[in-house]
Simulated scan of single mutants.
Amino acid sequence: MNWIIFIAVICLAAVSAAELYTDRYDDLNVDEIMQNKRLMDAYMNCVLGKGKCTAEGKALKAHIQDAIQSSCAKCTEKQRQKSRKVVNHVRANEKNYWQQLKTKYDPEEVYKSNYETFLANND
């Protein structure tokens, strides 16, 4: 009986881990991007579909809609922390980009309460 419980727990852990976004870019230096207008513009244009994307930008662009809708449920802890940091920076300092992001990814503000709650949370 104990083996069955043990195997069930291992399977559950494996399924949960498989549902997270890749952690390949978790060590990306977001402070450097936020402090460099050229880099910030490049990433924003990528996720807005207005410019070329780096590998990191492509990964972000591929998951941004799902992350908004799910309050970053598949994000790693580092991704949650960095997402909050970057989005709060964009909201405060890059208002034009913030408006464009909202228009592109949540034009009817269906998910506004999700991402507002996520951004306010410090888990």
Rank of each mutant, 00 (worst) to 15 (best):
G57N: 07
E94Y: 11
I5D: 06
A120T: 02
A92G: 01
Y111N: 12
R24N: 04
E56I: 03
N96G: 10
V90H: 01
R38V: 10
T76I: 10
A67Q: 10
Y111L: 08
A62I: 02
G49W: 04
R80F: 01
A8E: 14
N114Y: 06
V86I: 09
I7A: 15
K61E: 12
N29L: 08
E109A: 13
N36E: 04
K104R: 11
P107S: 08
T117G: 00
N29V: 09
I10G: 10
C11R: 10
V9M: 13
Y21L: 03
G57K: 09
I68P: 02
L20P: 01
Q79S: 05
A73H: 07
K58E: 13
R80D: 08
C46E: 03
V110N: 13
S70L: 06
D41H: 12
G57E: 03
K112V: 10
A42L: 09
C11Y: 09
H89M: 03
M40E: 11
K85I: 04
C53Q: 07
N96C: 04
H63T: 06
A42V: 06
E94L: 13
N88C: 02
V15Y: 05
L20V: 04
K78L: 09
T117S: 00
Y105A: 06
E94K: 15
L28W: 13
A17W: 08
V86L: 08
Q81R: 00
E109Y: 12
K82W: 00
V86P: 00
V9P: 07
S113T: 15
C53N: 09
Y25I: 03
A18D: 06
D123R: 01
T117W: 00
Y115Q: 02
K102G: 00
L101N: 00
A14K: 11
E32P: 01
R91L: 15
D106I: 11
A92E: 07
D27P: 05
K104A: 05
K82I: 02
R91N: 08
I4K: 15
E32K: 08
N36F: 07
H63S: 10
V47I: 13
A67M: 11
N96E: 14
N88K: 15
N96T: 14
N88Q: 07
A13V: 14
R38K: 15
H63M: 05
Q81Y: 15
C72T: 05
C53S: 10
T117H: 04
